[in-house]
Design a binder for these strands. Structure first.
Lengths: 211, 211
DNA sequence: TTATTTTCGTATCGAACGCTACGAAATAGA
DNA sequence: TCTATTTCGTAGCGTTCGATACGAAAATAA
């Protein structure tokens, strides 16, 4: 919906004074600020300062703070089809989980981006009137877990995993570890530390008859 | 230090108008509010309303918002010695990890308390001037991990774990899963769901020669 | 050119923020 | 009783919050 909103905004423009700033660049600045400081603890004046625009420009271009955050979250999460394809196209569910978790470490400890996960940090706390934002963010997580669960069921049906494998628990474990990694990353853990944790966690993966 | 502060406050009192509210009960109300809404997103007026006292009473009894939160966090975390003893006195490090994680599920999904972990939720986001509060909360986590790591080293030395076991990674996994459980609990996951995730995670535990 | 449309910067709006000055009220000690 | 001490409730401090009203500026369309 945000995408179509922007399309409409950039395609429908036929007259009027042109925008004097790069909308995408400003959105990325906003995303980085939300990533570092969270949703409610990032103020409009913080945003306008970082984005290099005034408050009225922000409201004209992005609606309000809530819609700006949702658009920033979408920019952070990327095209959902991309992640889904990565899970679906991996050789095994194990490879998908390993790729996702090690990729998360890279994202969470990147030197040019804030530590941790935007989706985990931005809405962990929040007042009552931000509950809908929290719910939308939780939906991103739910979507990842469901994709992983479906992939696990597929592997079970294909005999690549024992029938005793618990797809719901394993997909939950991947999500749990990923969110936990965000906390440790924000606490300052090194990528090497986090990588050894992920490798250990993946030992919980069932194998098709090793033991 | 908070404890000694309170001792001094309650023991040194020799004259003056007596306090008209229960300090411990008010602190517990504050803790529950920080637990649910986080540190910065809980306002003084939220606190005074829930605690049933006025702002000047709050400041007289607890100092300021930061010190009130730190005291609430200490009430939440409990006596650190208790957790340390639980880890040290468990039959094995595995039992300690299992007890901690399943106990965390009970805490994170209790029906009379907010979902998730106060320490995970309260400071996941935050502005720059709350960095010291975040650092103190991170210290709670670091302490748990270090206790777990020490216990794992002890078990390795006693031959209860293979020498190949990575104590740092395993202790990190316990902490990672625990923090991840908090996120899923806040998203509304059931204790049964979380329990199956923990049981799966514990499959990553090394054994003294099963394979 | 003239009219229309959109964004621009300036200057705020009312509300909520963390926090406190101040005098009345309630206790203990002299 | 009188004084010292502490907490009480009222009222409000200065600041920041998210969000806008308004007229000038800059583009297109007629």
């Amino acid at each position: 919906m945000n995408v179509s909103d922007e399309r409409r905004q950039t395609a429908q423009r036929k007259s009027g004074r042109p925008r004097s700033f790069d909308r995408e660049a400003a959105l990325e600045k906003a995303m980085l600020l939300f990533w570092r400081h969270g949703y409610e603890t990032t103020s409009i004046s913080d945003l306008t300062r970082a984005m290099g625009i005034t408050a009225p420009s922000l409201y004209t271009a992005f609606g309000d703070k809530r819609r700006l955050f949702l658009e920033a979250a979408q920019l952070y999460a990327g095209e959902p089809d991309a992640e889904n394809a990565a899970i679906a196209n991996a050789p095994t569910a194990y490879d998908a989980a390993s790729t996702i978790l090690h990729g998360a470490i890279v994202t969470f400890t990147g030197e040019t981006t804030p530590p941790g996960c935007l989706l985990a940090s931005a809405t962990a706390s929040g007042s009552a009137d931000a509950a809908d934002v929290r719910a939308i963010v939780a939906g991103y997580r739910q979507q990842l877990r469901e994709q992983m669960r479906a992939r696990l069921e597929r592997d079970k049906a294909a005999g690549m995993l024992p029938q005793s494998a618990d797809a719901a628990a394993l997909s939950g474990l991947v999500l749990t570890v990923m969110q936990g990694l965000s906390v440790l990353a924000r606490d300052g853990a090194s990528p090497e530390d986090l990588s050894s944790i992920v490798d250990t966690a993946l030992h919980a993966w069932p194998t098709a008859g090793r033991c």
